[in-house]
């Protein structure tokens, strides 16, 4: 029964979210024809005991994809930020989006 603080909507129940998998791999450029790099992206996953970045989709909320850092042992949500952002995590705080 996770609670995830969406940067846009605030703290919400897990039922509003869809799990989107590992967020620690970056999709190769589309023009990259190297099967190995694509295979790395699609198939090879770290399975850390501890902090792990993963995508969650606020499916029933603002429909934004979020990059959630979660502790896989305690389920503690350490940070949440929009998937499109690459700067510092928002630490679960509400942000103004104007």
């Amino acid at each position: 029964m996770l609670r995830i603080t969406c940067p846009y909507c605030g703290e919400r129940d897990y039922v509003e979210f869809g799990y989107g998998g590992d967020a620690e791999n970056t999709m190769p450029e589309l023009s990259d024809t190297d099967i190995g790099r694509w295979a790395d992206y699609v198939f090879f996953r770290n399975d850390p005991k501890g902090e792990h970045a993963e995508f969650w989709h606020h499916q029933h909320g603002c429909r934004q994809w979020l990059r959630v850092v979660r502790n896989t042992v305690t389920h503690e949500v350490i940070s949440v930020r929009p998937a499109s952002e690459t700067d510092a995590p928002t630490q679960g705080k509400q942000v103004e989006v104007a």
Binding site: Y8, C9, G10, C62, R63, Q64, P82, E96, V97
Partner: peptide, 21 residues
């Protein structure tokens, strides 16, 4: 400014349903 508040004027209300929506 956020995805929570509704603003209204006359018979038009604005709901910010996403960051830029």
């Amino acid at each position: 400014v956020d995805c929570l508040t509704v603003t209204t004027h006359d018979d038009v209300s604005i709901l910010r349903v996403g960051p830029t929506r």
